[in-house]
Amino acid sequence: MAVRLQTEPFDLGAEVARLTEGRSDIGAVVTFTGICRNRADSGAELVALTLEHYPGMVEEELGRIEAEARARWGLADALVVHRHGRILAGEPIVLVVTVAPHRAAAFEAAEFLMDYLKTSAPFWKQEETAVGRSWVASKAADDLAAERWKK
């Protein structure tokens, strides 16, 4: 199960190298990196995000989503790395890597992983600005994005 939860930043290049090293059966690698913007949803300047999570359930839920993506798109490999704790503006939050024989499967599976992760992995973002802290509200657009993958 290639799912990892960590507080420290990750190295995209090193992760991709690890996934593809010694393999000649793959034709496509797609990566998505989610980065902490310097604007809060209110428009105020954002200092940092703090990500709270449900230990245990996060790993299980990400594992279920990853297993579904592997099976549905016949992936050669997949990786999800998600940070928690305090993340400064400009730092990476989440990494999704999909590896497949062809690009269409790798692109689609990466989108699926992100759409599902946003609506079903138990993480909650709190924004930190000059005026204080506030919890980020969920977005209807994220629910719609996840809906489209329902078979």
Partner: peptide, 26 residues
């Protein structure tokens, strides 16, 4: 027990029930 549950889900036998706002990770 660490799996999403709908409002009509039975709680008999549950060891752990968690409550939280809609998720905002990613």
């Amino acid at each position: 027990d660490k799996r999403h549950a709908r409002p009509d889900a039975p709680i008999a036998g549950a060891r752990e029930i968690a409550f939280f706002p809609p998720m905002t990770g990613g």
